[in-house]
Design a protein around this nucleic acid. Structure first.
Lengths: 346, 346
DNA sequence: CTGTTAGCGCGTTCAT
DNA sequence: ATGAACGCGCTAACAG
């Protein structure tokens, strides 16, 4: 069990002092003889020296670690975003530490504390489904921790927030169905209490209004986020002898559940009924017919998050509180293709 | 920016010394007046004291953090395993720190060093696709770090290894196709240099041998891990006017690629050609026909990993070097259902 | 340009 | 039962 070599070892080896070694190792000091620096660097290399980040953290409160907290990573969205965040931050010399809250507010709070105690230089957070109390996050921010929220945000948190432009793209998605000739469109919403659900509902309504298509609140149905929940919702609707002209589901999985049930009962998609998803996943191109969906560009989302976080770290507190909207792409596939036209929207 | 309260603050508040406070806070000291301890505990609570893990790490080299390094988390397998690992370790008082290597050996090495430098108490690793040099991992192990490998392992690493019983379940999978009446079965392998690929190839051969079914090395084709690569492989085969009786793909995505190409050319699955996947993913129940596949139980895998790691941490070095095999389930679905029978295997 | 010293927060002897 | 003093590895303020 070979000991870890420290600056003290190097100092001893070179018959010099620890502070000299420390300065030689840190680029920013210029009051040091270039030759000495070279000797130190050489010795450090030969002795296999690696700085101890723990000691450094303790001393200067800076860790070059960034904490990321997400509600889950069983779906592909968060992993993709994390992956992209990591890719960019590594270039800036940061390491990324990921923790999952498993949709539990308690775990989220623990993660928050752990990362704060471990002195990460910044925090990237997507809230739990059940997070309503945001006092602790705001407290952390007030203590000076750079924080960026994304995707699942809470407007009362005093940090920059990166979110997808749900309203706009929900509007576009609905408009697409309308332009394809579909009427009597139903919206399968994600759980109502999520801010994004409300935005998507508003986008849905806005498009209907624009084309003066009559609708009642019954056209909006609250579902969950799983395939099963989507299928259940579709089943309940059909059991009441309601046959929609089209279904715009606020999530791909819900859309797929709906398709399954429609196919099971022999309905033809897209000819009889159109189906549209949201937050495109790999599943869209596997289900038959391929699912039309709105793609959220995880790379752009990650870009913006990293940009805002680094700003916040460097500008030291002058964080731009507010929402930064990211746009997407409407990927038209078979499940909504009635007519030939309607250009791809970007 | 309120300061973080330390034991020194508590000591000052109570007009006592830091060492007394420290002892009072740590259960294991008994040479301390119970009343004093209560006073300290009360003050700590009221002042909102939280121990600084960084300082503690520096002092005693123990962090109650476990590092996890995986090659990617874009697919569902690793996220699921990590999720389960986290769930179990949290109960034991550990926090889990996840890093992705993005299939790059260099990044893997960096992650390894970062986590080691950050004094994690243990390491859970699944190797990169390109990892051939394992000197560094072995060096870490020799320095006394508890390490458990899983899924992507290298037999020369001196640690416990948790792997799926690829041979056995590849054998079962092939046997299933044979019992369904399929002949002229092709195996679409993952990249050859992965140990698991070889195991699955052997299982494939073993089943053919058992039923005395003739085959040539040409029945084994090296592919990648993506849908596209599976589709490409199928295309190349059909372009050479070779029509398999069945395809056993070593990965679900590859299988799905194969199905896509077969459907595109009008072949009927499972009637004309049977298809079998491996390492079941959510996609299996979405593709049509639903894909028969071998499920790897991520919860059992995580259980074994955590068990071995905790053993290694506590027994302090007496790690059981060797392979621990985990069994799975054969989920028979539409893509291989020719005859009615053949019971579900577990 | 180099060395001495103090201190980050904590746990741990060793006196008292 | 309590407290003073030291060290974990590093950086920074200050002498020299």
């Amino acid at each position: 069990m070979e000991k870890h070599v420290t600056i003290k070892d190097i100092a001893k080896e070179l018959n010099t002092s620890v502070s000299t070694v420390s300065k030689a190792l840190n680029e920013k000091y210029f009051d040091i003889n270039p030759e000495t620096r070279q000797r130190v660097l050489k010795a450090a290399r030969e002795m296999g020296y690696r700085p101890n980040p723990i000691a450094r953290k303790l001393q200067q409160g800076r860790s070059y670690n960034i904490g990321v907290i997400v509600p889950e990573f069983l779906d592909t969205f968060f992993p993709e975003v994390i992956f992209n965040i990591q890719k960019r931050l590594i270039k800036e010399g940061y390491q990324v530490v990921v923790m999952s809250s498993d949709e539990s507010f308690e775990t989220e709070l623990e993660n928050l504390k752990t990362l704060e105690d471990n002195m990460v230089d910044g925090l990237i957070i997507s809230l739990t489904r059940e997070t309503k109390n945001i006092d602790y996050i705001n407290k952390i921010i007030d203590r000076g921790m750079p924080v960026v929220l994304f995707n699942r945000v809470n407007p009362s948190i005093r940090s920059p927030k990166v979110i997808f432009d749900d309203f706009k793209w929900s509007h576009f998605a609905t408009e697409h169905l309308i332009l394809q000739g579909y009427r009597n469109i139903y919206h399968f919403s994600l759980p109502y209490h999520l801010a994004m659900s409300q935005k998507r509902i508003q986008g849905f309504k806005s498009a209907l209004k624009k084309y003066r298509i009559p609708f009642t609140e019954e056209h909006i149905i609250e579902t969950g986020i799983s395939i099963e929940e989507g299928q259940e919702a579709m089943k309940r609707l059909l059991d009441r002898d309601i046959v929609p002209g089209a279904v715009f589901a606020a999530g791909d999985k819900v859309a797929i559940g709906a398709i399954k049930e429609l196919k099971r009962r022999g309905y033809k998609i897209p000819d009889q009924i159109g189906v549209m998803g949201f937050t495109e996943s790999a599943l869209a191109e596997i289900i038959e017919p391929n699912l039309t969906s709105v793609n959220q560009p995880t790379d752009k989302i990650a870009d913006k998050i990293v940009e805002l976080l680094l700003d916040s770290i460097n500008d030291n507190g002058k964080a731009k509180i507010g929402e930064f909207l990211i746009g997407g792409t409407l990927n038209v596939r078979e499940s909504s293709r009635v007519m030939a036209s309607d250009p791809k929207r970007t």
